[in-house]
Design a binder for these strands. Structure first.
Lengths: 112, 112
DNA sequence: ATAGTATATGAGCACACACGGATATACTTG
DNA sequence: CAAGTATATCCGTGTGTGCTCATATACTAT
């Protein structure tokens, strides 16, 4: 994108849609919860403290964006991160934020 | 984010907000238009084929997110990309899309 | 001061979507 | 087949925000 020709309207919508999928705290929580390996829906509901209906919906959204992949095993469905660029994306954004918010950087990690 | 402790709620909202700012085709057009140097509002309106009011609003949004910076010169205001991670972010997303959409990859560039 | 140009902002509308509760589907076990 | 569990989907509501039109602000020039 930097040095190449500008993207056309359709491509821009696709890129924007991708960012939009990542623009939801609950979905970021899900992604975070999956950084250390696959989990089933019940585990994800517990890890994110959301309702089952809402988590399921967000998982569909992340699937449609090809960010997650699913594996069925009996009654349970296990989700995992399918797109290797996702961790890099999050690192980039977090790094940028930490740099611009050095004063508040200490607050960014869970344990204060 | 990948290896570190999970982000707390406040941090997640900040990250999500950042993605949300990038989740708008018109704002991506503005960012693209600024890849090759600063432009004033009138030039950006022409480059993006948007209305002046709308472009101005999007520029405020990008400013508030510290993605752009502005420089006033008489009547005109020149905007430029202030966050160096933005081009990298776009490259990452575009690269990922091209890889997952190899069949449609040819359609991604402006000239079809 | 007046007129003219560049940019920003206020008001109102429309649409997308996150959320919760209830319900449906899929699968397992007895 | 019935009962139970895990996951997905439907429906209604509320909120956020992108868009346009009109107007306001900031600056320049005559």
């Amino acid at each position: 994108m930097a040095r190449k020709a500008p993207l056309n309207d359709h491509a821009l919508e696709i890129v924007a849609r991708r960012f939009a999928v990542l623009a939801e705290p609950m979905r970021l929580r899900l992604i975070q919860a999956l950084f250390d390996g696959e989990k089933n829906v019940t585990e994800l509901v517990a890890a994110t403290e959301g309702t089952q209906a809402n988590i399921s919906r967000h998982l569909q959204t992340l699937m449609a964006a090809h960010i997650l992949a699913r594996r069925k095993e009996g009654l349970q469905v296990f989700y995992r991160i399918a797109d290797p660029t996702i961790p890099k994306l999050c690192e980039l954004v977090c790094g940028s934020l930490e740099k611009s918010l050095t004063k508040q950087a200490g607050h960014l990690m869970e344990g204060r």
